[in-house]
Design a protein around this nucleic acid. Structure first.
Lengths: 137, 137
DNA sequence: GCTTACTCTACTAAATCTATAGGTTTATTA
DNA sequence: TAATAAACCTATAGATTTAGTAGAGTAAGC
């Protein structure tokens, strides 16, 4: 299941990518347009800013804006920041690898092999899709 | 993330599928071999039995056994029983469809389109992989 | 009728998710 | 320079889910 955090984050990013200019857009404008709680969106945008995808400006006329071209923001990156590992089990994660405590041998684990296939497939989509692809009709 | 319930369920099923005969295997045998809490596995196997994939026998010499040939048990079915929808958002789920409360129009939703692609890919793997495929080395 | 092993209901502890509250900081503008 | 606007930050609360436990009940076999 995709968390609301990630879903809202993606929606907010596409909203910003759809703007004609990259002038700052207020949180409240995004939150109203996309039906997202203002306060919740605040924390999400903050995370994306700290990750370097958004810039912000304080005070009147302030808001958030994209720091990169949408074509340079792969979904995989956004997903990892907001949701965490793309893999369904930590033992097949490339960026967040962890050994399963119950599994003595990954090589012979049936779930492991299956989940590698799922990861490769999902990864292929997430790495090769960028924000720019999402804003096309 | 794959829940432990599903992971344990898949491991238990492959364990049963690897047996030479389909004589009943005690929960405790499976739980020890696969490092799964006995009581937790109990509830998982019960679910799989009620779904028709396992049979059980009570009393001495009792246990669980497969009701179908491993090649007739697609991973997708097991996943849906134990984990729920394969889709990452309910609005792209085939079997558990639900409208998103925040989204006014699915046709123009960028997340929706993306998640349909992910679902199709994952589904393709889960539908075309059976228990029989998992037990091969 | 005793033992074995599955069945079933209910419960709990911990973690995670989805926010919300409320004050702080910074920038603009009148 | 005072007022205002808007992001920044920390903490926390409520709901839900997960993972596992407890313990009594039921059926099968010897």
């Amino acid at each position: 299941m995709l968390s609301r955090k990630t879903k809202y984050g993606l929606k907010a990013l596409t909203f910003l990518a759809r703007q004609e200019t990259y002038d700052p857009v207020q949180i409240s404008v995004v939150s109203k347009s996309e039906n997202i709680s203002h306060k919740f969106l605040e924390t999400i945008l903050l995370i994306l800013r700290k990750a370097g995808y958004l810039g912000s400006k304080k005070g009147k006329g302030g808001g958030y804006y994209l720091m990169k071209d949408p074509s340079e923001i792969p979904i995989a990156a956004v997903y990892r920041i907001l949701e965490g590992p793309i893999a369904m089990v930590p033992c097949v994660s490339l960026n967040f690898y962890e050994k399963c405590d119950d599994c003595p041998d990954e090589q012979t684990c049936s779930v492991h092999k299956l989940m590698i296939r799922v990861r490769d497939n999902t990864l292929q989509i997430f790495e090769n899709t960028t924000l720019a692809d999402l804003i096309e009709k």
